[in-house]
Amino acid sequence: MENVTLTVNGKERSAPAEGRTLLVEFLREGLRLTGTHVGCDTSQCGACLVHVDGEPVKACSVLVQDIAGAEVTTIEGMANADGSLGTIQAAFREHHGLQCGFCTPGMVMAAASLLKENPKPTEAEVRHYLEGNICRCTGYHNIVKAVMAASGQDVAPPAVAAE
């Protein structure tokens, strides 16, 4: 097996990889960055979503040898420099946007990509963007609230809610 080198969360990291080694396997087993999760085998659930050269990528759909030298950001790289929670992470905590925590790393990474592309999304845009990330615990309600809050916005109350 040959060594593959990536810049992960700002640091150069190397580990051996086979031709068939997926980025997510490389991160979890090669580098022991276990914050990135595997929830399915069809690139549907988004629990493994990371950023590769600034773009959101499902790490189960990339062979690590194909992206040798790339810059990768994972959930372990999302806190502030002083270790405190980043804006999106803090919003998820404040608005109870996670329960079991398994989909959470992918959700946070997807939300970060969304807010980079679209700093003031509507509720519908948030829901649409998160289509590739499945959460079984929260019903998405508080995830949507958290992402909106991270963008500095509130969620409008339901259309038929009584005053």
Partner: peptide, 21 residues
């Protein structure tokens, strides 16, 4: 009360069974 669990789950420090080798 805000959840204390969240600090580890939001930073990739959760320890799920597959994280155990």
């Amino acid at each position: 009360s805000k959840r204390r669990e969240d600090a580890r789950f939001l930073t990739g420090k959760g320890r799920y069974t597959d994280d155990i080798n």
